[in-house]
Design a protein around this nucleic acid. Sequence first.
RNA 1: GCGCCCGUAGCUCAGCUGGAUAGAGCGUCUGCCUCCGGAGCAGAAGGCCAGAGGUUCGAAUCCUCUCGGGCGUACCA
Length: 581
Amino acid sequence: MKKYLEGALERTLRTFDGVPDDFTIEISVPANPDHGDLSTNCALKLARYLRRPPHSIAEQVVEIYREHHHDPFYIDSVTIAGGGFINFRGSPSYLYQELESCLQLDMDFGRSDLGHGQTALVEFVSANPTGPLTVGHGRNAVLGDTSANLLEWSGYQVTREYYFNDAGRQMRVLGASVRSRYEQVTAEPDQPFASEPRAITHRQHYQTKSIAGADQTSVTVSHTFPEDGYLGEYITLIARDLAEQHGVDLLDAETDNLFEQAAKSTIFSEIQSTLERLGISMDIYFNEKSVYETGAVSDVLKSLGDQKMTYEKDGATWLRTSELGKQTDTVLVKQTGEPTYRLPDIAYHMDKLKRGYDLLLNIFGADHIDTYPDILRALDVLGLDADRIHVIIYQFVTLTRNGQEVKMSTRKANFITLDELINEVTPDVTRYFFIMRSAQKHLEFDMDLAREANDKNPVFYLQYAHARICSIVRKASEVGLEMDPSIESLQRLIHDAEIALIKEILHFPETVMSCAQTYEPHRLATYLRSLAEAFTKFYHSCRILGEATEIAQSRMALAHATAITLRNGLSILGISAPIRM
RNA sequence: GCGCCCGUAGCUCAGCUGGAUAGAGCGUCUGCCUCCGGAGCAGAAGGCCAGAGGUUCGAAUCCUCUCGGGCGUACCA
């Protein structure tokens, strides 16, 4: 209907003199339904160009529209509001036809061909395997997966990718941390868990002590807990596993490598299972290492050098970001010869672009706010099409528990993992809470509320509406009542609450498209809430069971269409649509 | 200091490319269960949209400044 109206108005305005070439017709849904179903402000906007009062322009627009471009199939009536708004009331016949098509499309209702089958790569989570996923990663994961779903529903071929780095200093520290815990565990097998203060006592403890091995030989341990080591409990658990498998055999290992590998694989599989619980599975795990192996890193360095965008200073290689709109230059290669993370990041994005994706979507935490523009600038300098890259920056999550804010750090021991969160509030609630708010706002996650007060939780409102419809359908089938989805049947839906619900349902496809286009997945959650609200209003003012057969069959069809929309919407959000609760 | 993000009801937040009377949930108050699921519904109270200028027919929305909060501003990832 909107499309039709756009075309009709465009043709109408073509007969006017003085309309600018780039004039765009805006059609919006009025906040107040009394004003109609669709509304345009074009007369108001044209007032300045045509130098006439808006109302008189509106009259002329309406006159020409009525005479030449009016199609009663779509539009029932046209009115001019005081200020100069032109309001259109949709024709019921159109409404019923769209509702019928919703019922026919069923699982596909809401899908569009916006992307024309273009390829999109969504990179998200991308946490390095140094510890369990945190609540912050949870927001990233849900944001990324939901965006990917939205793109899929909008006609893109989507690849989900996880970028990680399992080399370098942080991994060495990880390995050393595990080793130190292993030594402690094998020395004091009865200690339940190593806690933070114990880390400091290690030094005195191990530097002097000899441990009797299973093979009767003595090993002197001289390792201490790394100064900036990982203190989480999970490190000790990994160490215990190693102790169970290998006893004390690993005490004389020459390097920490074995510990590092064990930690990495354990942590990685835990990350994967956490994501799985949220219904997320990645298509590609991309190791930063491969960007070195393919030569992409050296290519980037060379190309940037050729562009005279780099220089040497103090033994390091710098990128002239100050010439690209930034205050200072940035180090790409350290004095030590080791690259900073920015260099492989550039190479990685170059690699993604060269893999030919039409659209690259990245989900980054607010701490990347300063780094990703460097990447885009560098790619631009390299002559790559950085416009294909879009970034969703999300603000941090603060978790409150027992009325107190919980500070989260992977390195310190006092963080709540995403797994623990899911345990307490279920995957559905987790996904909904992370998606219901705009990404660029701080998210306050009140654990006590989410856990205790299930009935106050908005996600249950949506699921409840769905379960209720299913229940009605069950009851109806017991008495042999089936829905009638024919146009003739749908035309019997004339109650205000019925019409309002139909209109709400029909907003679904454009909502999906616009969420995908603007990368604002939270608006889908807002929409589903108002859909469920429209349904409960309908439910309370229009009975189904017990009414005359014909109207009952029509209302069954409307309830079914609501269930379709709820189910499809929830599936985009990765949330279940239960049949009963 | 500089860069990016955010200031909307007591609290947590919606508010689509500027539009008509700024909306939900929670909390508070008032009603509603012989009736398809009350995890609900109907209603009330609660707002100088942080503040001040500007742009325009029209601003919570765009621009400038001020004040508050967050994140960054590492040869850490």
